[in-house]
Structure formats: C-alpha cells, structure tokens
Design a binder for these strands. Structure first.
Lengths: 321, 321
DNA sequence: AGCGTTACCGTGAACGTTCACGGCCGAGCG
DNA sequence: CGCTCGGCCGTGAACGTTCACGGTAACGCT
C-alpha cells in the first residue's frame, strides 16, 4: 500500500477514507482522498474480495447476443441477479471457435454458470470441478448434484395453438420445419402428432435453416404446397418472418388466406405487419428460477430444494393467427 | 488452505495439481484432485487475482438489453473483449431506479466502464475515482483525462439518405419525430436542414414517443399529412415500423407510394416486409474502439493516443426506400 | 566413494485489503 | 489531581493464491 506512506497515514486510515467509515477526521480523509486521486490509486477488488466474502458472480452463457431472444434472457437474468446483489459476466459463444479454451480463460472469474452450455458434461466437470451449472432449455436432466436446469415444454403451447387454429376452421395446416423431412425436429413431430390427434394431417416443408432467409426461400420454392395450406406453423419466429414475406409477395393475405404462427415470442414479431402470433416462454420466470437455483447450489446449505423445473410455452395471440 | 493438510501435501503442491503445472507426481496430482472434489474445494479467484495481475474486467453499461440495438452492441463488445482476454460485466440500467446505488454495489467489480453512462460526471468521479470511462453516443467530449468516448455523427447518413430519396424523385418528405413540433430533436432538425439545402421543404409529425406503437398511432392520427407525403423519415426504426404498419393498413404501398427510412440499423428491419431501409452505425467498429480505448486508459502507458472518435451513420439500403 | 543430475516437494514472502484490538491525547467531571 | 470517556489513529493478523528458492532422495556416472 504505497499510498498510505505517501499520505503519511496507515493502511487502515486509507481504508477508512476510501469507504466512508467512521473514526477518521474529516480533514485527514480529504487529504487521503486527494493523494489517492493524485496517484491514480484505486482499491483492488481482489484484495477486498479476499477478506469480504460477499459478492458473487454468475457467468451467463449465450449463443449469440445479436439474437434478441438471448437479449431478453440476458436482461431478465441481469435484473434478477442485481436483485440479490450478484453480478453477471457475459459469455457469448457465437464468435468463439473453441469453447474449451474460452471457458479455460474466463471461467475462473465466475462462481456459477447459467445458460446454454453446450460443452460436454465430463469435460466441463474436469475444467471447473464443483462449479454450479444451471442449464436452460435442455432436453433432460443430467449432471451431478451441483447441476440444475430448466426444461422447456412445448406441449401446452402447441395444444393451445392447434386449438386456436382448429377453432378458426384450419384444416390444411403446414409445418415449416428447419430440419430435413426424413428427420424432423422435435417441434415438428409434436405439431404433427397434435394435429393427428384431431384427425387432421399436417404437410411439411423443410427450410434447411433457422433464419428468415431460409424461411423465405423455402416457402417460395414450395409455393404450390403453401397455397394449398390455410395455416403455417414455423419452427421459429425467424422462419415465420420469412414465410410471411413470401406470402405477401405472392398476394396471399395473412391471416385471411393463411394464418401464421411462430415459436420464440420475439418482440420483433410486434414490428411486422401483421404482428406475428407465436409461442413463447415467460423469460422472467426462467431467469428467476435460474438465478435462485444458482444461488441455492452455491450456498450448499444442505437443503436440496428444487434444482430442476419445467416451464411451458404459451400461445401469444397477436395478428397473424 | 484446508485441502493441503487434508491431502497431506503443501499449498504449493495443491496449486501444482490444480493448474496442471510440472514438478508433481502424476499419482500425487490425482490424489489431490480427488480430495479437492471430495471436499468441494475450488480455488478462489480473489486469491489468484491478487498475485497474478492479468485478467481485467470491463463493465458494459446499457439501457435495456431487450432492445436489440444494445444486444448488438453487447455482442460486439464481448467479442472484442474476449480477443484481448478481458471479461465483460453486464450492467443493465433499465430496471434500476437508483443508478447511484446500483453503481455503488457493482462498480467495485470493474476495472473500466464502457457504454451509456447517464450519471453525472462529478458524481461518478467521486464514486469511482480514476476509473476509465468510455462513453458511447455522446454529444460532446467531457470528463477528465481518464475519459473517452465515441460520438455518433448522423450527418453523412442523412446526406446519403436525402440524396437517395431525392434521386428517386421524392419532393414531399415527411419527418416522423419523437419530440414535439415546437422543440424538434436534433435528428429532425438535421433532416429538415438537409432537405432545405436542396430547396425542399419537409413537413413534420410528432409521435410523442420512440416506440412502434407511437409511430403507428401518430401516423394514423395524421393520415392526411401522411397521404400527402412521398417519403417518411422516422426518428428511429421503431417509429418506422409503426409507420409502415399504418401505411399498410391504409393501402399505401411501400416503397411504391411512400418510401420509408428509419434510423438505427436494427436487424429486426430485415424481418419486415418490405425490409426497412435505415441509417446505421458500424457497431463492430464502435465496440473495437471502445474496448481498445478502455484498455489504453487502463494501461496509462504515458502515450496519450486517441481517446475520442467519431463514427458516421451510413445508409443501409434495403427495400422500403 | 564421490559427484552431478533429475524428479519431486516444501517454505518464506508477497499480493492488497479488512477486522479486531489496543494506544494516545485532550476534554470533561468528581 | 485523578479518572473516565470519546475521538482518532496505528498494529498484528488473516484472507487464498502464486513466485522464487531451497531442500531431499534416488539414480547414474566416473
């Protein structure tokens, strides 16, 4: 502590001055503060963190913040974390080629991991032994006792959506999937089954991608199939955006001629015309659970509590269906 | 270091085991690792940070991550920071009422501040004396020697946009401003002046807000003015989205009847139909400068370098104009 | 036997901060 | 005068880790 001698006082007095603590003369405090500014001194967060065990940091692992979906998640997590005095370190894996090296470099900074961890469990456990991990949108429970997660359940949303469409007279629904026909996505499978349960057969078009352009091109390429449908359910909102664009270019009105439903609940869906009806999860609830679970796993206070949860998609009715 | 005695070795050997260092027997390492897992031991980042002065953290201050604009900024900053081995702590001020208390709690975790700091300079300087600050989108240079920033220059974009519209025969442009008519925004003023320099008078409609709904309602409420225009330039993309929605509902075609241009360059503008032509800044360049400047101010290596820069908006031609 | 080399491991010291405690001095009181 | 008390300040100790160094034993070589 160089500054102490520079100001002619002791370490402790410097500490008192910097932290607005009592037991220090106002004049002395000012002198210390002046010297500190002069020398460009700033207390080290490491030195402080070593002795005051309070502040904890959670690492938020997302695929690509450019995608507003992750933005909404991040906003919710940050808000919740701030509420319990935790910080959030952003880990965006979109532009990183080697997730292993990435985590090696940044993970020591973090007390817990939350979000979309794609890395293998064994590998991660070796890399960050004992670090609590709360995964989001995982198919199944996995990992040790310091792992948790939230599973997304599409089913209630699909049921609501199919009910909604069926009630509006839809009988020739089309699934716009991202995956190839011979190996449909889980979402597509569920849609098809749900319609089948109502005695309606769903046709399928594969987009071969998850972005708007794929949706636009796929629907344009299979226009006869699209014209034959009275509703399109897309793998996600982006594909739905693309589909709506194609529909419009071909004079097909939404929702009068064809209804369109996406999945994700992106806010961007309110900027289109018509606004996109979609299936979405309550991100606030997801974040709330993730943060509280991370905190829980961090404390290890013996009480196991719930480490896993399931949140259902809900139908968000806007204008396109 | 409790674990050292538990494994029957010294602190240093534990360190060697945890960090894959040489000079340790493979068998001993495994034993230490086992004991560590058993006891749930994890090296403290504070203890480590105290002795290895390397990793630095920058705090990214944004208004509201739900807004994809900030998501793009965050993604770019994170990518750049990772490139120079820095971490990014997310500070979202959208849901925080008292920015002062917020910073008091979280700022000690951070080595530098980047982004949209709204708090008063004097206050911040008192709170975090000497902390480098790089502000984004500020009107003017301000702050001490440890402050920097990037100024956004709308002018080249406006010039390009007006040129573009003028070349396409636009003569009755309409400004959709967020601020009231009697006190127009800087953006509106610049638009109006640029048109005036070409001998064209611009009419103005005030939306009284910056979101899509405001744009939709304002244009709907002043439909006669809108019908009389052959181009609409909006305060931002959101207002443009709203305007396009109203235009569509009233059978006005974009861009055939009326051209529309926004400001922000949101990716969401590519999901609409037609895609929104807009003015945007190169976020990657902004982030690059912000991170490198933060690093520069952190080092204080004497060479002053450039602490301020100006990046110009550019016209992004899509479909709406 | 004596020597150097290698593999492995331990011991101060240091990083910067806060906590618990104790000391000094002047003022007030009996 | 002696005593107490409050205001102000300094001194070990501790937090958990790494660095630089030194030490020990085993082994091979001359």
């Amino acid at each position: 502590m160089d500054i102490a001698s520079a100001a002619g006082v002791s370490r402790q007095t410097v500490s008192r001055a910097m932290n607005d603590m009592p037991d220090i003369n106002a004049e002395t405090r000012q002198r210390v503060l002046d010297v500190a500014r002069e020398l460009g001194y700033r207390p080290s967060r490491f030195g402080r963190g070593l002795v005051t065990t309070g502040q904890q940091t959670i690492g938020l692992l997302v695929d690509n913040l450019t995608n507003p979906y992750y933005g909404e998640l991040a906003a919710a997590v940050v808000a919740d974390a701030a509420g319990v005095n935790m910080s959030v370190l952003l880990l965006d894996t979109s532009r990183v080629e080697d997730e292993h090296a990435f985590l090696t470099a940044l993970a020591p900074q973090v007390d817990a991991l939350v979000g979309y961890v794609k890395i293998d469990r064994r590998e991660l456990d070796l890399l960050l032994p004992g670090v609590p991990v709360v995964r989001i949108d995982v198919p199944s429970r996995a990992g040790g006792p310091h792992w948790g997660g939230v599973r997304f359940d599409l089913e209630p949303g699909v049921r609501e959506a199919v009910d909604h469409l069926h009630a509006h007279g839809v009988r020739r629904p089309l699934m716009l999937d991202s995956d190839p026909l011979e190996n449909p996505s889980d979402r597509a499978r569920m849609m098809i089954d749900t319609w089948a349960a109502r005695g309606v057969e769903m046709s399928v078009v594969s987009a071969g991608g998850q972005d708007a352009r794929s949706g636009e091109e796929a629907t344009a390429g299979r226009l006869e199939a699209v014209r034959g449908a009275d509703a399109i359910m897309a793998f996600n909102d982006y594909l739905a955006f693309g589909a709506m664009k194609t529909l419009r270019k071909n004079g097909i009105r939404v929702p009068e001629d064809t209804r369109v439903i996406g999945i994700d609940g992106l806010a961007a869906g309110t900027y289109t015309s018509p606004e996109l009806t979609t299936l979405g999860v309550d991100m606030r609830a997801v974040a709330r659970f993730a943060v509280s679970t991370a905190r829980h796993l961090l404390d290890q206070d013996g009480s196991p509590g719930r480490r896993w949860t399931k949140v259902g998609y809900r139908l968000i009715v806007r204008e396109s269906a």
